[in-house]
Design a binder for these strands. Structure first.
Lengths: 139, 139
DNA sequence: ATATAACTGTTATAATATAACATAACAGTG
DNA sequence: CACTGTTATGTTATATTATAACAGTTATAT
């Protein structure tokens, strides 16, 4: 049997998609990524979705469900339970890790006898950059 | 100008969709609802999405973004900021309102200078019913 | 009554995602 | 080495979800 791929060594296609997402300033949709990687030999959606699903499994990226886009996971935290803050204005997505918050969500679930496995929080609003731009315009 | 529709009196098509969602034990997709309401004269997706978007605006339903399905909002709470707990096993969605939780999420946003407007929390796991069934099977 | 905005119907198409099958690369085993 | 099961990749077609654009209708304030 072939050795299971370690996280240190991603498959070529998976690595290409991961790099592309990491190098993008804003989160990317699957077909957007597909276009970007067409020169590298990506042809069909299924190729892209395979790589994306692998990266999701590994926890290296998040999917912003409300926008159908993908964003690299901020590596600085371990428990990949985080708040994704989506800026309506510029489209950027920031990740706010908060372990105690994760505990609280699980606790609320348990109050209702719900055994939670994973969860996602998506915030909509305006990021700090866009807020300061608005303030400057008002001056 | 036509009077703005009050919440007490929904338009016929909107009301039909709302009733259909409320009467469904599990959350429904748009095309699923469309099939159910075909006998009532619904023909095209755009008819359904118009009604769904109206209900979302009014806060009468939620969209479960990770599943692309719609669920009636639990009327018992006002500040429609809630946790949606999706059961992997039976597909049911429960709503856990928690106002203090909402404040906490906003606070985490503000710590990062993010002005949040709205947000959604989706929990994945196993509901109390399915958990007890599993326990019974183990006996 | 009639102008106007809201609602509804209809057709077409865009955007997102997966199924199903074929081929290639690879690692272990006899 | 040749065989075998597994993972990875390529390819085609199709399913699923959502919106655009336009025409026609209904309701209501004036």
């Amino acid at each position: 049997m072939r050795a299971k791929q370690s996280v240190k060594q991603l498959n070529p296609r998976v690595q290409q998609v991961y790099d592309c997402i990491k190098n993008s300033p804003t989160p990317q949709g699957a077909y957007n990524l597909l276009d970007k990687l067409r020169p590298e030999g990506f042809r069909a959606p299924s190729q892209m979705y395979r790589a994306l699903n692998r990266l999701l499994e590994l926890g290296l990226i998040h999917k912003v469900e409300s926008l159908n886009v993908f964003v690299a996971c901020d590596q600085s935290h371990q428990s990949c339970v985080s708040i994704l803050a989506v800026c309506d204005s510029c489209g950027s997505v920031e990740e706010f890790p908060s372990p105690e918050f994760a505990d609280q969500v699980k606790a609320i679930g348990l109050e209702h006898s719900f055994e939670s496995r994973e969860f996602a929080v998506e915030l909509k609003g305006r990021c700090s950059d866009c807020t300061s731009i608005v303030h400057e315009l008002k001056e």
